[in-house]
Each structure stands twice: as C-alpha cells, then as structure tokens.
C-alpha cells in the first residue's frame, strides 16, 4: 500500500513538472534562434527520460499519457492531443528500445526520442490532413531534433548525475522492493 502511494505520488509530481516545463518552454522565443515555425525544445522530455530510466516503462508511460491529456486540456485545444500523443508514444517506444540496447547514453536516447517525436507528429498530421504533403517538413524537423535532443539530453544528464549522487535510485529501489531503479 505504502509503495503504491509513493509510486503514485512520484508519478503525479513528474506529471506536474512535465506540464510546468511545457508551459515554460512556450516562453522561450525559439523563433529568434531558429526562424522556423513549430520548433520546440521538448523540455518535458527530460521528465519522460527520467521516468523511463529510473522508474521503468510503465510509470513513464503513465506520466506521458497524463501529461498529454492534461496539457491539451489546459491549452484548451483537444485537437492538439492527437499530435502530442502520437509523437509522445512513438518517442517513448524508440527511447525504451534505445535504452534496452545499452549502447547509447542519455544524449543519444534523447536525440532518438526527439526524432521519433517529430516523425510521429508528421504521421499524425498526414492522417489528420488526409494528405502526404506534411512529410516535406520532416527533413527540417529531423535536423532540429538532433540539436533539441542534444540540449534536452544535456539537461537530463545533469538531472541524472544529481539523482545518482543523491542516491535516488538506491533509495527508490529499496523502498519499492528492488523492482525499480534502472539507473544506479
């Protein structure tokens, strides 16, 4: 019972943090740095990465779904849900596979996730718009995904090092019966 409450509380905190980062991200004038429409850093992916690496795919999936639904609800645009959900789910699958591969660091996993996120959103756009025209934007998005993914990867690496130094993984693993804590 205690373990479940702890897990639920941590997932709720991570969801709130991801929503906050999504909001803060909108205040960053990306258009001044990269003069292209629709470019985002994807700061919320730091939280998804943390959940995936420290808590496992299940909780990470729950945090992602909650963040997508609540984000669309707060933004007042449920039409955006299909894009964030498709991109987010594809990114999650790719990042989980990249992590399981064991070769990539948090930087590489983040870049793969960013590229998958953009590819997923373009697929959703093609389905919603009922035309393949949106694919012409994918090369540009993939190039920006490398830089955005590396930046969020750097942020995630800092968080991971701090969490590891604080012994988060060991504490979490002990308190949740040794079943969690992918990163030590």
């Amino acid at each position: 019972m205690r373990r479940t409450v702890k897990k639920l509380t941590l997932c709720a905190l991570l969801t709130a943090l991801a929503l906050g980062l999504s909001y803060v991200e909108r205040l960053i004038p990306m258009g001044l740095l990269i003069p292209l429409p629709g470019i985002k850093l994807g700061l919320a992916n730091v939280v998804t990465l943390f959940a995936l690496c420290f808590l496992g795919p299940g909780p990470a999936f729950a945090v992602l779904i909650a963040r997508c639904f609540l984000g669309s609800l707060f933004a007042g645009s449920l039409s955006g849900l299909v894009f964030s959900l498709t991109g987010g789910l594809l990114a999650m699958v790719v990042m989980a596979a990249a992590r399981k591969g064991g070769r990539l660091s948090v930087y590489g996993i983040s870049v793969c996730g960013a590229a998958a996120h953009n590819a997923g959103q373009i697929c959703a756009a093609m389905a919603v718009m009922k035309t393949p025209a949106a694919i012409s934007y994918l090369p540009v998005l993939l190039v920006t995904a490398v830089f955005a993914g590396a930046l969020t990867g750097a942020a995630a690496a800092g968080v991971f090092r701090a969490a590891q130094a604080a012994g988060f993984a060991r504490t979490w693993s002990r308190e949740t019966n040794g079943k969690q804590g992918g990163a030590t």
Partner: peptide, 9 residues
C-alpha cells in the same frame, strides 16, 4: 545509464 556523450551517440 551513461551520462557522457559517446561514440554511439
């Protein structure tokens, strides 16, 4: 999880 940029990245 590695936190340093490597060759595979």
């Amino acid at each position: 999880i590695k936190t340093k940029f490597g060759l595979w990245d």
